[in-house]
């Protein structure tokens, strides 16, 4: 029983991270109908920015509230910039072209980033994982019994950050002018443009927003894993994509539920079998979902318009 509870806690902790990344996929898919393959790798770039800031603050000594705030805000701003550049120079020139060209471009960007960062020349970090400074010094917050169930402080902090981010996003999308514009573009970009919405600006804004959320999630992941490495974007990104599909891609609350669900499933499968299977679980689950309910838990099956 205590095993079960511990897995539940760990699953929720990693699930919230997937959920944050999945939000980026879902938002971009909503406005562009594009699966942004490079999303996870943009997140990885953000993590390295956070890593650089944390190192220059003195590595493990950066464990103050202000230090954490600085690391997160620099990484989120920098990542937003990367997302903006990717959209501006990678996807915007192709918007009128067949959808496949944008998809291939995003795959190209993804691989350039994840393998480019594995080189060890110039400022590039090289393939070896770097230990992420303990900017949130880990200690057990709750211990039940004789270390039967442990809740770490970073689990609680990352859960809180994730919840705040999600609520903020929910507010932004449903309660502000920008959010309304975003939903309009998502519904019908051409008509939205005719109604006076600056479509390009909204799309740029969506990318910046999604990438910043990804940077935040990436840092939480780095704190959990205590490491950053160039391939993390590919794996976390793919799993987050699976989460977005489970929830119904394009559906904001669906991405959150999908992320939590995936985190839990992964944790339980790994917990009761072997950890080497971790990377295979998500994809197996994806195939099952696509077989049974391809539009996701909350998505509506939409017939393609001619």
């Amino acid at each position: 029983m205590s095993d079960f509870a511990q897995h539940l806690i760990n699953g929720i902790a990693s699930g919230t991270i997937y959920a944050l990344v999945a939000l980026g996929y879902t938002m971009v898919y909503g406005v562009l109908k594009l699966i942004n393959f490079a999303h996870g790798d943009v997140m990885m770039v953000g993590c390295y920015m956070g890593y650089a800031v944390a190192q220059s603050l003195g590595g493990d000594d950066a464990s103050s509230f202000l230090g954490v705030l600085l690391v997160f805000s620099v990484a989120m701003a920098g990542c937003g910039l990367v997302g903006f550049l990717v959209e501006r120079f990678g996807y915007r020139p192709l918007r009128e072209k067949p959808r496949l060209t944008a998809l291939i471009t995003s795959i190209g960007i993804s691989f350039t980033l994840s393998y480019g960062f594995q080189l060890d020349m110039g400022f590039l970090p090289g393939a070896a994982p770097r230990a992420f400074p303990e900017i949130i010094r880990p200690h057990e917050l709750f211990v039940v019994g004789d270390y039967d169930i442990v809740i770490w402080n970073w689990q609680v902090i990352s859960f809180a950050i994730a919840i705040v981010m999600m609520l903020g996003l929910q507010f932004l999308v449903y309660r502000t002018r920008f959010g309304r514009a975003m939903r309009a573009v998502s519904f019908d970009p051409k008509t939205a443009g005719l109604m006076g919405i600056a479509t390009d600006r909204v799309i740029s804004g969506t990318f910046i927003l999604g990438s910043s959320l990804a940077a935040c999630a990436g840092l939480l992941y780095a704190i959990k894993d205590t490491a950053v490495q160039p391939m993390m974007g590919l794996y976390v990104g793919l799993k987050a994509f699976v989460a977005a599909v489970i929830g119904g891609i394009g559906h904001v609350p669906g991405a959150v539920v999908g992320g939590l669900l995936l985190g839990l499933i992964e944790e339980f499968v790994v917990g009761y079998t072997a950890s080497t299977w971790r990377d295979a679980v998500a994809f197996g689950f994806l195939i099952v979902v696509l077989l049974g309910r391809p539009e996701g838990l909350f998505g509506k099956a939409v017939a393609e318009k001619v």
């Binding site: 471009t105 795959i107 960007i109 993804s110 691989f111 350039t112 980033l113 393998y115 480019g116």
Partner: peptide, 8 residues
């Protein structure tokens, strides 16, 4: 990296 950049 060259393959990726070539695709883009």
């Amino acid at each position: 990296p060259i393959y990726g950049a070539t695709l883009v």
